[in-house]
């Protein structure tokens, strides 16, 4: 990856992180740590990998993105706003009455949201049908489906994983957000790696990438997406709360509870300092 491209993606990710924090800060609710961990991946997808049309948001041949992981929505919304799907001002209404930005991705309410995923474990099944439909329409579109690693432990997910090969869908890419490091695993829970063989046994090809390195993601996507004749899974290794020391070091006691005003100020200051700007 060229330095220029990487610098651009990194500075975009920094801007997105700041908006994610502001958005959750204004809403005084929402899961910040999960969203922060997905920022680099979403920036990579929406600025580098996915074919979308800025002048025609509903372009039929665009790549689709399905957000299986609801908790990551602040990151998705910020990216969609920056890509021009809706005005950035909408971010400050996140989770409030009448807002187009709901806690979960709501089809037909939020421009740029390609599928409804209100309940966990739904994403991959919808991705199967959507990819199949696009195949039948002979559209070159690919379907990216982001899933949380906890969804790997639900039954519907594995039904969908088996179904993808049975339906012989082409152009399907499951992105698994692996933010559970071995260290932080609760007793009895398994990390993503344990599922690699399971995926392969269902006929998937499996790759992995560092979700905070654009070069690593580019490498994995180039290799993995070279052949989309069958389903592909990419394990994206991320760090909960990436970019904000308070979260990264686990000093925020519960990563899924919205931070207070002081924490938001501190996090923003840290990111502002990094970008060389004062607030």
């Amino acid at each position: 990856m060229m330095d220029e491209t990487r610098n651009f993606l990194e500075s975009t990710a920094l801007d997105v992180r700041r908006d994610v924090i502001r958005m959750v800060g204004v809403a005084k609710s929402g899961q910040l740590a999960s969203a922060l961990s997905l920022v680099d991946l979403l920036v990579f997808l929406y600025w580098q990998e996915m074919k979308i049309s800025l002048s025609e948001p509903t372009w039929p041949e665009r790549d689709r993105f399905i957000m299986g992981k609801r908790n990551g929505c602040p990151a998705l919304y910020t990216v969609l706003a920056r890509r021009g799907f809706f005005p950035r001002n909408e971010l400050w209404n996140f989770r409030s009455l009448g807002a187009i930005l709901q806690h979960h991705p709501q089809l037909r309410r939020t421009p740029g949201v390609d599928a409804p995923t209100g309940s966990s474990g739904m994403g991959l099944g919808i991705a199967n049908g959507l990819a199949l439909g696009l195949n039948r329409r002979k559209a070159p579109s690919r379907v990216f489906c982001l899933l949380g690693d906890s969804e790997l432990e639900t039954g519907p997910f594995w039904e969908s994983a088996a179904n993808a090969t049975r339906l012989a869908v082409r152009g399907l890419v499951a992105l698994i957000d692996c933010n559970l490091g071995e260290r932080s695993l609760a007793p009895g829970r398994r990390s993503c790696h344990h599922f690699t063989e399971a995926f392969r046994s269902f006929g998937w090809r499996v790759f992995s990438a560092d979700g905070h390195s654009f070069s690593s993601m580019e490498e994995a996507f180039t290799e993995g997406l070279a052949d989309l004749g069958g389903p592909v899974a990419i394990l994206i290794h991320t760090c909960l709360g990436k970019g904000v020391t308070l979260f990264e070091e686990g000093r925020w006691p519960h990563s899924e509870i919205a931070p207070g005003r002081d924490d938001v100020e501190q996090a923003l200051k840290e990111l502002n300092d990094r970008s060389g700007e004062g607030e």
Partner: peptide, 14 residues
């Protein structure tokens, strides 16, 4: 459950 999800995806492809 899978059946409805598959159909829903097909509906999203119009």
């Amino acid at each position: 459950a899978e059946l409805v999800l598959t159909a829903l995806g097909l509906a999203l492809a119009d």
